[in-house]
């Protein structure tokens, strides 16, 4: 549905997006994840036809975003980082204006607006001026304007930024509910957003692709370190020294969350570790497995540790 190939965007000497390629299948929610200034907004602006790319191509539903810009614009709904609202219009008026802009036929306009209002839960504020509604509602109006022409593709730039935790949860479940017939790309710098709402992720940093794929594939690919975190009643330092001597153990160090013991993937030393701690009388209080999750992956990627 969305195919980005070797995309490059330069602003003078600054390279905002550098040779980025990824693709998203129809009906999926895909996250564009990266720290601030990673090139997420620029990528989305190119996809929506707001900015031309310096090099490379991007296509939405088979239409090139540059050559067939008008067709692409009609099938995309776009929520920019700052919701593009006119404070002096009412919610209904505003959505009607956007429906006109997106060339919704006049006969269907009323239904289109009503549907967008319903999908985003705006019934209670639809007659109010946008400047008088809360930030959470404004964000919903932003999403409603992206939905009003019933687009096949939704592009949401940081849809939950600046909202309180309850609002974030509401917006996330709203986005989940839009899934199905629509393909959605959302950008975020918050990892939890991706793990909670997305099927897959594209991780970018400094304009470059760092990793991409479905969440399960990505986590599987990095769970290559096995180990446990222990808490002991006795001296943790002595326990660490004893564990280091155990055959197969690569590492046994004291860390903030406890005594971290690691071994090569495949081997399962949990029995041995537990037996040693108990038999030597260190007093086993807690033992939990460590798995490298997507958060570790993300932190490693953005700090430059992994380059896939």
């Amino acid at each position: 549905m969305i195919a980005v190939e070797n995309l490059v965007k330069r602003y003078g000497d600054l390279v905002a997006v550098n040779d980025l390629s990824f693709s998203v299948e129809e009906g999926r929610i895909w996250g564009l994840l990266g720290p601030n200034a990673a090139g997420k907004t620029t990528t989305m602006r190119i996809l929506t036809g707001f900015l031309p790319a310096s090099e490379g191509t991007a296509a939405v539903a088979g239409f090139d975003v540059f050559r067939d810009a008008d067709k692409v614009k009609q099938i995309i709904g776009y929520l920019p980082e700052v919701p593009p609202l006119y404070p002096d219009q009412t919610v209904t008026e505003y959505l009607g204006f956007v429906a006109d802009l997106k060339k919704v036929p006049s006969a269907k306009k009323k239904d289109a607006v009503a549907r967008a209002v319903k999908a985003t839960g705006l019934e209670s504020v639809k007659g109010r001026l946008i400047k008088n509604i809360s930030r959470g509602y404004r964000q919903r109006v932003g999403i409603a304007q992206a939905l009003v022409h019933d687009p096949k593709v939704l592009i949401l730039d940081e849809p939950t930024i600046g909202l309180d935790p309850a609002q974030i949860r509401e917006i996330r479940s709203m986005i989940q509910s839009l899934k199905g017939e629509r393909t959605i790309i959302l950008s975020t710098h918050i990892l939890a957003e991706v793990t909670q709402t997305c099927d897959g992720v594209v991780i970018v940093n400094e304009g470059r692709l760092k990793a991409s794929g479905s969440l399960s594939d990505l986590t599987a690919s990095v769970e290559h370190k096995d180990g446990v975190v222990l808490k002991v009643r006795g001296s943790a330092a002595d326990a660490a020294a004893a564990l280091r001597a155990l055959p197969g153990v690569d590492k046994a160090d004291l860390e903030a969350d406890g005594l971290r013991v690691e071994w090569a993937p495949g081997a399962d030393l949990r029995d041995d570790v537990a037996r040693l701690v108990v038999e030597k009388g260190f007093g086993l209080l807690e033992m939990r497995p460590i798995t490298m999750n997507i958060e570790d992956l993300y932190l490693k990627i953005v700090s430059g540790g992994v380059d896939q």
Partner: peptide, 13 residues
């Protein structure tokens, strides 16, 4: 200033 330019420019108009 309000960012609504982005709405206009990403509309098929």
């Amino acid at each position: 200033k309000a960012g609504t330019e982005e709405l206009l420019m990403t509309s098929p108009i």
